[in-house]
Amino acid sequence: MLRTDRAFGLLLVAPALALVTALFLVPLGYSVVSAFTTPDGLGLGNFVKAFELYSGDVVYTIFIVVTSTVLTGLVATAIAGYLTMGETHWLVTGLAWLYRWPLFIPFIVAAQCMRTFLAKNGLANNTLVAFGLIEAADTVSLLDWRGVIITFVWKQAPFVALLLAGAMASIDRATIEAARNLGAGRLRCLIEIVLPQVMPTLMVGLILSFVTMLSVLSVPLMVAGSQPTMLTVDMAFRINAYGDYPVANALGVVSYLMTAIVAWFYLRYAVRERGVA
């Protein structure tokens, strides 16, 4: 009975697993094999070529993604922290209503918004000029690495803030009250009492954001110019312009490695946390 039950269960899961295997696991294996296959057999030739052509973009990609992740963490902590510990009722309500908006906006729409908003003649510059904060002649287009980072933080900070606010709401408020009664300021309370308790949630949110930012093609394509650019754009260019799968796949493996390093840091952190507890 138990045996047939198991077989029946596997039979029910099989179609879904087949879909993931055919459309994810097989292409993944294919990309790794292709990256290490050169005309002379297995080797690192494609990686050498990829680094000769794109080492600058590898550094640029790491810079963009790391900076955006750090800023996302800071903005999300500030928003969630104020939502949890803020004492001005109307400000908490206003913030709670406001911060969610970018959450469900597709990346491609966010990219189009920023493409107009951050341009030399965009609403951001024009508003600053209208309020006399800068001169019309001094406006600069932010459509480069700054625009990419702004778009990523705009899109991901609400997501991490939502996760964090949920986690902060469920921690024991007595510890916060005790620290406040002993005279600790709200900022100190947030950093020393609240943040350590929600660290696992913050880490998960930031890692998901990191991988998402590493995968998005539309934002670097639409918000920034062509040089330097992110690895996603280089891969697309390598394929569309040259049909050069080996080098594109070598760049793909580099992006898997970036994900793997972050995943490794997270696992080490998670194991250590569990070890202490």
């Binding site: 294919y30 799968y245 994900t259």
Partner: peptide
């Protein structure tokens, strides 16, 4: 393990996968 397998397509940089899907 089966639950994790369904998560993987979201956890890997997509462009590198899609170019190979397109080729297949």
């Amino acid at each position: 393990l089966i639950m994790i397998v369904f998560l993987l397509p979201q956890a890997f940089p997509g462009v590198a996968i899609y170019i190979n899907v397109a080729r297949i």
